[in-house]
Structures are given as C-alpha cells and as structure tokens.
Write a protein that binds this DNA or RNA. Structure first.
Length: 349
DNA sequence: AATGCGTGGCA
DNA sequence: TTGCCAAGCAT
C-alpha cells in the first residue's frame, strides 16, 4: 500500500464534477433547472429506498405520489390503505412509521417538514441516515450522510481492514471528513451515485472511477474485498401452514396482523405457528380441507416452507371476508404466493 | 449492541 | 441452486 493519504479536497472536487456530468435521472430528483425537490418527495423516496433497490421502489414511489400528492394527503389516509399500498415492498414497519411520520408532520409541524437534522431525527422511522439525507438533499444543510454505499466507498478509499459492523464508527468518521457547506445535497448524492454505479459491491468499475487515483483500496490490487465483513449466522428453516377459506361469493378470510412483529399491521391469511420443528397441523376451523401444496419463501432471518390448505365454507368466524382480487393486492408477498397456489386450476374444483 | 424485520435480482 | 445483498430503523 502506498504511504500516502487520500487527498480529501481533490476527491471532493473530482467527485462533484463527475456527478454534474453523470448524475442518474431518478423520479424523486428535480429535473435540471427545476426548483429543489419537495421535502415530501425526498423523505418518501429515502424511506422506500431503505434496504430496497431503485427498480423495486420506483413504481411504489409513483403510486404513492399520485395517490397522496402531499404529506397532508398521506396523513389523512386510512391505515389499511397505506399498508395495502406498501404490500410487496417489504419491511412493513416502514409503512407504519411512514404514516405516523406523516401525521406528526401534519399535526405537529403544520404540514411542513422540519428543516434541521435534529428535528427530522425525532420523527418516526427517520434515523441517522434519513435525517441527514433529507436535511442535505431537501434543505441544503451540511450533514454526514452515511448509508451502505458511503460505507463501501470509504472502506475502499481508505482500505479499512476492520470488518463491518465493527468498522461503522470509523467509516462514519472518514465520511465526515468530506462534509462541508458547499452543495451538501449534491455531495451526498454524488457519493451514493458513485457507490451505486461505479464503486459497486461486486466488480467495481475502477477504470471509470473519478477518484481512482486517490483510492488506497485500488492500490492494494483488490478493491472489491472492501468492506471486510464478519460472517453472518446461517438462516434457520421453519415450516407452517396458511389457510385459504373461500365462501360461495368468491371471498376469502383475512385478518389484520398484530402491529408488532413479522408482517406487523399487514393483511394476512389465517396461519398455523411457523416453527423449526415438526409443523403443527391444527386447522383454524372444521372444514373439508384440501392440500394445495406448499410455497417457499425467504425472510431476512428465516426461510419458510408454507403448506397451503384450502376449504370452501360459509362466511363466518373471527375473520374479515374480502374479494379475492382485493385481498391479493393488499397481501404481503408470502401470502400472495400462498393465495396464488390456492388459486391454481382445479384446486377449488 | 445484537437482533428482528421483506423482497427480488443476480452471479 | 444458493447465498448475497440494496439508499436502515427500532428496540
């Protein structure tokens, strides 16, 4: 490794110049020459992009901004509308907090987003990253915006050998060396764009990198090995059942899941417990059950084999009955898969 | 501070 | 096919 340190000012100027030429056109960014993007759109996009890819989030961003053009519109929405609109995007606590945040902005801030990092940080679902991102991008305030992209770029620029997550404080400190009052929002987005398009997790494109000359990671000959990572624990496997009760009007039984925990606050199908041991075969009601087969699904911290059981019944019991298509649209993916399995030809014969 | 929390795309 | 992972947050 060369016995030099990356030139902070040089990196700043070269990366901002690169951003001026290569910034991605994204639906939540103001068109060139337009006024600064609405804080509402910045905040909404940042929440949707937490642990989520741009292609996955994009149609949801369009759907939300069309249906709820302002934060006050969103604040006035019903819980079930918002949770249903988020279905399929994952990490559903984000949707619960999104609505709580919109209502806080509407109710406690007169419908106007607070414009400081500290005030933003008090809002539901707004953590260190999102507060800094909104403060810098929407309000041009100097803020240390550190996401996974920024961590990776810093780990490579400085060839940080400490594995994440232990290295996080050091990576944050390094990112802070670049923060100034000069175009803070553009700096943050330049760094994240670089991470997303050039300094990618796998096969970084160092040949087109505007700051390659300053990168200690590249100088080691193997920049892709940064950031170092500690091995994750293996994902356990669970088994369980989901029950599709269908009545004579083509409606199915659904329930709203508890606020906390997996798929919290979302619409769901009746289920058994999902366990690592032998599955518990206790149907929720007496009926002529048919085995529709199983679906596989992978959550962050466990994988699941879900047996799908179907039965025709009279609408009754502790459930809500919804037309099958309306339910399909509002269910999280694991249950949408189960419903699709239950709806396969002949299963309701 | 370690853990719980989704999904879909890709090598 | 299987693992890895993508703009984190709450507790």
């Amino acid at each position: 490794m060369p016995d030099v340190s990356p030139d902070i000012d040089l990196i700043r100027s070269q990366l901002v110049a690169w951003y001026d030429a290569h910034a991605r056109s994204l639906p939540w960014r103001a068109a060139f020459g337009a006024a600064r993007t609405e804080p509402y759109r910045v905040w909404l996009s940042e929440v949707m992009l937490q642990q989520t890819t741009v292609p996955h989030a994009t149609p949801y961003f369009h759907a939300f901004t069309t249906r709820w053009p302002t934060v006050s519109d969103l604040a006035a929405a019903e819980d079930a509308e918002v949770m249903g609109a988020w279905a399929g995007l994952g990490y559903y606590a984000r949707a619960r907090n999104l609505l709580a945040c919109a209502r806080a902005v509407a109710g406690e801030h007169g419908g106007v987003f607070p414009d400081t990092e500290a005030a933003l940080l008090t809002l539901p679902g707004v953590g260190a990253y999102t507060a800094a991102a909104v403060a810098s991008i929407a309000f041009d305030r100097a803020a240390n915006v550190v996401d996974g992209n920024v961590e990776r770029v810093m780990a490579r620029l400085f060839a940080v050998e400490t594995p994440v997550p232990a290295a996080r404080p050091e990576l944050r400190r390094l990112a802070g060396l670049f923060v100034t009052d000069e175009r803070p929002g553009d700096w943050a987005q330049a760094l994240m764009d670089l991470g997303a398009t050039v300094c990618r997790p796998k096969s970084p494109s160092c040949g087109t990198c505007p700051v390659a000359s300053e990168c200690l990671g590249l100088a080691t000959g193997d920049p892709a090995r940064f950031p170092m990572k500690t091995k994750k624990a293996d994902r356990p496997h669970r088994r369980g059942a989901a029950y599709v009760l269908i009545d004579d009007q083509g409606r199915i039984a659904v329930e709203t899941r508890p606020e906390k925990g997996l798929l919290g606050g979302m619409l769901g199908l009746p289920t058994s417990d999902w366990t690592t041991g032998e599955p518990v075969a206790a149907a929720p009601v007496e009926a002529d059950w048919r085995d529709a087969g199983a679906v596989e699904h992978v959550f962050t911290h466990f994988s699941l084999t879900l047996a799908v059981m179907t039965a025709r019944v009279d609408a009754d019991g502790p459930y809500r009955w919804m037309p099958i298509e309306a339910a399909r649209a509002a269910l999280p993916t694991v249950f949408a898969k189960a419903l699709d399995r239950a709806s396969a030809p002949d299963l309701f014969g």
